[in-house]
Design a protein around this nucleic acid. Sequence first.
DNA 1: AATGCAGATGAAAACGATACCATGACCTTG
DNA 2: CAAGGTCATGGTATCGTTTTCATCTGCATT
Lengths: 372, 372
Amino acid sequence: MATITDVAKRAGVSPVTVSRVINNVANVMPETRARVLAAIHELGYVPNVAARSLRSKRMHSLALILPDITNSFWTTVARGVEDAAQARGYAVLLCNTDENLTKQAGYLRLVASQRVDGVIIAPCDADPAHVAPLRERAIPTVVIDRMVTDWEVDRVRGDSLSGAYALVRHLIGLGHVHIAMISGPCGTSTADERVNGYRLALAEAGLPIDERLIRRGEFRISSGEAMTRALFQEGLRPTAIFAANNALAMGVIDAAGGLGLRIPQDLALVCFDDLANGSRLFPFLTVAVQPAYEVGLKAAQLLLGRLEAGAADPPRELILPARMIVRYSCGIRLKEGSGPGLSLPLPVRVDEQSIPIPPVASPAPLAAPERR
Amino acid sequence: MATITDVAKRAGVSPVTVSRVINNVANVMPETRARVLAAIHELGYVPNVAARSLRSKRMHSLALILPDITNSFWTTVARGVEDAAQARGYAVLLCNTDENLTKQAGYLRLVASQRVDGVIIAPCDADPAHVAPLRERAIPTVVIDRMVTDWEVDRVRGDSLSGAYALVRHLIGLGHVHIAMISGPCGTSTADERVNGYRLALAEAGLPIDERLIRRGEFRISSGEAMTRALFQEGLRPTAIFAANNALAMGVIDAAGGLGLRIPQDLALVCFDDLANGSRLFPFLTVAVQPAYEVGLKAAQLLLGRLEAGAADPPRELILPARMIVRYSCGIRLKEGSGPGLSLPLPVRVDEQSIPIPPVASPAPLAAPERR
DNA sequence: AATGCAGATGAAAACGATACCATGACCTTG
DNA sequence: CAAGGTCATGGTATCGTTTTCATCTGCATT
């Protein structure tokens, strides 16, 4: 494979000049530049990033560390990151942690050894010790979706609190009083915040908060099924369930099947995060959606901006507003005559209504986050 | 950041010995090894892959080039690749082409410059010219899902022909005679093969093949909708549609909504590739599924095997069998009393039946592919 | 005419690891 | 006991770039 020296020989210049042409730095005579470009083209020369980054300390690559690319939320985030990176010629290393600290630690080591320029990470938990390698090595990082305690770092996330609040208010507005919430692990900030939004909405409506209706598990289908099953087995009979993410909602559906409950007739269901084809597939969940693609895009742009400008501004927090998509899983008919009635015939596709969610103030306010 | 020399000094050995310890090559005295390991640990040393691969010509990374990670089929493939790579300490570079040749070409350039050890690619089309950079530079490659004409290369793919054949036979068995097929671009082998399977099943059943019922477009929702709409607008009235992938099936659902057709009552629908939560979300599509995770896993294993063994065996083709998952989108009740009737009430979750698909012989047989 | 300066280019060193070959110590074998 | 082999280790060159500094040319300034 051709090297920079081959190109230099062919163009009758020194490797240094070729390097200058490639990187568009300093002044090179237009005529020389043309000769170099011609040589590059003729030889099919492509710079060797290993050599380049050994010398220049810039790898031109990012690592994206997230729980599981298989979840449509993360898929879309990844797509946003990838697009932003690609636009600036950066490569993206994909890392799935499965919410597993050991895997995460392994990837942090990999990331250090790859000497990636920056990292976008949705950490397994909020414990700063678990992301220590990033801080110790001062690797530019953007934390997405989650929070890490005591770490002043760039962050991009959706507005979980307001989204949860809006969903629960929606349920309350429909007359529900016994609303259960199933959420993810304590300590995972999104799970916590969604519970906060739930509490806030109930409190504001003057409804009692029954702690037995709040369940915490993991962000996975099986956990959602177990929690739902437990709720009903313990004799609590919520008329509506708020699932803190889409996987949990799928668990609710599984449990409902087993319990002989129909959605929406017997049980209303809302959740955070959309499904892949939410408006095409029944039960047409009513959801709060974070702008997943934008979370990825903005995170990557923020990171790349830092890398290229080298600016040492103070860390920023970007909270992207969520939207509520009202569909059918609470039994509402959106427009007279347009949507299906509650009983039959089966709809093929539901009309949906997308509503911006206004931010609500956090009960325990954060350090002046930036809204946009 | 600590270098190998720092470690060497601290352990009182030469960098060469440290290198040997890191790479587990040659014999190092246990006591020396321990000293080196201790030094590594104390300094938090992580090898610099750039330097390493500059010298050793091995990047320890793979590129995965596929149409769109957002499609659940590709998501799952990616997950398989990632898991296999991670297990052997390889990093995965993610590249989305959006079926766009320009983007694909850009990534091939990136891949060359990154000097990745190997590439797993689902090429946009079968034109060998479009993947020429891989061949010219002799980059070890595994082609997945698609085919490239005149290229003897390792391949891993699902059995499209048999899957399509099985689905159409299923429809025929239910009494359908007017079955339409909407597929992807001509020249994309999966799209072509699925059409072949369709023809084969009809021919075998002695049914006439109406060319107007076969439509070719792109593998995207909007294209599926347009083709379905066109079918009905032209006065053809198929009772069943076979969509060549999940995105096209979503397009059928969109079109059906507009046309006032219910699935399955008015129109049966089957497709290739599963949806993310196919058994939880109505219309519970009956599908042929390729083992997407396995496609990714096997492709990565095949590639890594080649890289590490350096074996120059002849290229292999792995055709993984598809399965049929019979659900509800053709209006069948699986078990008396277990599934829902055709009319109501709405099911929450459908029982499903997963059936292995026996391979069928290709009408134009391929070069002795390997089955497993 | 001497000086200064900017532009264009090149020579050599350096980045951090591994490949290759060399060396000395110790062991085996006929 | 000499010859040869194995083991543990080290010295040095090298991978392909970019960085740093030096050189040279030509032109404007004084």
